[in-house]
């Protein structure tokens, strides 16, 4: 008989296993379906705070400042991530406009802020009942924020346009590049197993009556 806390299950094939600790940086794979199950990461909480904070700084210029300026036929035209969303909106493709808004503007911001606030609360060991919900929401948004796909889209657009106009790269382009880097880095620095374990610790700690009180 083994306590259930010493066991773990593969999320993909439900195989029950005894927990093993791997050295930092090494991945643990499920022996049956070969899915990578977890990877211990060093200083995950601190890294996530630093990365998401710098991402949040870059967010506003990345979305609202012009990315590129086109010069063609004596005219120039510049566009930002936000104006690209507005162009769908003005053409009355509302469904597409909403999806573009969510995946390229809202979710990247929402996810960075969620991770920032969760990591900060874990670091400062503050427990609020909303803490698990924040991390769960961040997990569910994982695949819905798509700044890195947008970046490839920017490159494709550059190649498409380069034959018919001169392109200037604006400040927004570099801020957006930085935003994408921080998004990818925050995902790879995040060790959700440690995050959940810490949340559980803080929770039980905050619910214990303090012995030196009164």
């Amino acid at each position: 008989m083994i306590p259930s806390t010493a066991l773990t299950a593969c999320p993909v094939c439900d195989l029950l296993m005894q927990k093993v600790e791997a050295p930092a940086g090494k991945k643990v794979y499920c022996p049956r379906c070969n899915t990578p199950m977890y990877q211990q990461k060093t200083d995950s909480v601190t890294k996530v705070i630093a990365i998401t904070f710098s991402g949040l700084i870059a967010y506003t210029p990345a979305i609202f400042l012009p990315l590129l300026t086109l010069d063609a036929m004596g005219m120039s035209k510049s566009g930002s991530i936000f104006s690209a969303f507005l162009s769908f909106y003005h053409q009355k493709y509302f469904f597409v406009a909403v999806m573009v808004f969510l995946t390229s503007i809202f979710f990247p911001l929402f996810k960075l802020s969620l991770l920032f606030s969760v990591a900060l609360q874990i670091k400062l060991r503050i427990y609020s009942p909303s803490l698990p919900y924040l991390l769960r929401t961040a997990h569910h948004l994982d695949e819905w924020g798509m700044p890195e796909i947008y970046l490839i889209g920017v490159f494709v657009t550059i190649i498409k346009i380069s034959s018919m106009a001169t392109i200037h790269y604006d400040l927004g382009f570099f801020c957006f590049l930085f935003l994408v880097l921080t998004t990818i880095a925050s995902a790879s620095a995040l060790d959700s197993r440690t995050f959940w374990r810490d949340i559980e610790q803080i929770k039980t700690f905050s619910q214990e009556p303090l012995s030196h009180d009164n």
Binding site: L67, L68, L70, K77, S78, G79, S80, S83, A84, F85, L86, S87, F88, Q91, V96, M99, V100, T103, S104, M146, I149, Y150, I152, G153, V154, V156, T157, K160, I161, A165
Partner: peptide, 14 residues
């Protein structure tokens, strides 16, 4: 979603 983003940027820029 790549293609959709490209169209969004194209219609904003061109």
């Amino acid at each position: 979603m790549l293609d959709i983003f490209v169209i969004a940027l194209m219609s904003a820029l061109v």
